[in-house]
């Protein structure tokens, strides 16, 4: 599958060792998942349909936003530190537009997220601006504008259409289905489209991609537009669940999403990673938190273990890719 990421480089040796390196990191993820499963199976009440639903539900909102962040990270733009704020703003738009109906409100929220994030992507893509500082600036701007417009109060829904998003077809929350569907879509876009291929190459080596005539600026902008749309989907579900939205709607989502992407084994430097990995990362973190919860550990311990998982995966992925390079 990774031949796609190295368009006609001519040399077979690097692509073969690359495949081996990726297989190794995949193996690590598999081992981690198996280890979690073993501990999980020995945990009382872990293996039950209700618990599986609980894990998937808690992974879904973070997971959808993390899919968006995956696009940004694959493109080599490091991270966005404005995810929580973008989600808060899109959620506010979504709820205040409820009087127009569910679909128009959803479209408006997605447009809001896409435009706000896409603008940042254009500056990163065309001018190579530092994404960390830029997204910090954006987070101030978004919160500032949102607070200014609302006077710092919560936005209440102007209609009831949003409740459709809280549906649980077959007993499983709608957002779980949406997460799985969006994972498939993002994976397909990354693997099977010209956009996906140039995103990987631009993330791997910006200068080489530019020298090869790839539209790096445009590709980055499109990736961020997609990311913003996915943040808005998370926003709509979060806002529908809370039935109110203020500037704190996003909570700790920025760091949760980064943790999910990193735990999936996607390196922060770009050029590698996939939507399926991110899904695995989000589910891994949710499953571990669930096991700790069932075993009676406090929220603090759950957060701490999440940090340790991310640290371990970052170190392992780095070691594997270094072994590949030498």
């Amino acid at each position: 599958m990774n031949t796609l990421t190295v368009p006609a480089s001519g040399a077979t040796a690097p692509s073969r060792s690359r495949r081996r390196g990726d297989l190794a990191t995949d193996a690590v993820v598999v081992v981690a998942v198996v280890a979690v499963l073993v501990v999980g199976l020995s945990t009382d009440r872990f293996v039950s349909y209700a618990n599986l639903k609980a894990i998937l539900t808690s992974a879904s909102l973070v997971g959808i936003a993390a899919l968006g962040l995956t696009l940004i990270m694959v493109g080599g733009a490091a991270v966005s530190l404005a995810i929580s704020q973008t989600v808060a703003a899109s959620g506010m738009v979504f709820l205040s537009a409820q009087s127009l109906g569910l679909v128009p409100a959803l479209v408006l929220a997605v447009v809001c997220g896409a435009v706000v994030t896409g603008l940042q992507g254009a500056v990163v893509g065309f001018a190579a601006a530092n994404p960390v500082v830029l997204t910090i600036a954006a987070s101030f701007a978004i919160t500032g504008v949102a607070t200014g417009l609302t006077g710092g109060t919560s936005v209440s829904p102007s209609g009831t259409g949003y409740d459709v998003l809280n549906a649980t077809p077959g007993g499983v929350p709608l957002c779980v289905f949406v997460l799985l569907a969006l994972t498939a879509v993002v994976e397909w876009v990354l693997r099977r489209t010209g956009f996906g291929r140039s995103l990987y190459l631009g993330g791997e080596n910006r200068r080489a991609a530019r020298a090869a005539g790839l539209p790096v600026g445009r590709t980055t902008t499109v990736a961020w537009l997609g990311a913003g749309s996915l943040f808005a989907v998370t926003a709509a579900f979060t806002a529908a669940f809370n039935t109110a939205a203020n500037v704190n709607l996003g909570g700790t989502l920025t760091f949760d999403a980064i943790a999910a992407v990193l735990a999936g084994g996607t390196p922060i430097s770009g050029g590698r990673g996939s939507a399926v990995r991110t899904l695995a990362g989000a589910v891994l973190i949710a499953a571990v938190s669930d096991i700790l919860l069932l075993r009676g550990y406090s929220t603090g311990v759950q957060i701490m273990v999440k940090g340790v998982i991310v640290l371990l995966v970052v170190v392992l992925v780095h070691l594997r890719s270094k072994g590949r390079a030498s």
Binding site: F255, L262, V310, V314
Partner: peptide, 14 residues
């Protein structure tokens, strides 16, 4: 960045 981010999360948890 990813290392210190992971530490940040772990320390808040601790």
């Amino acid at each position: 960045m990813p290392v210190t981010l992971a530490t940040y999360i772990a320390l808040l948890g601790l």
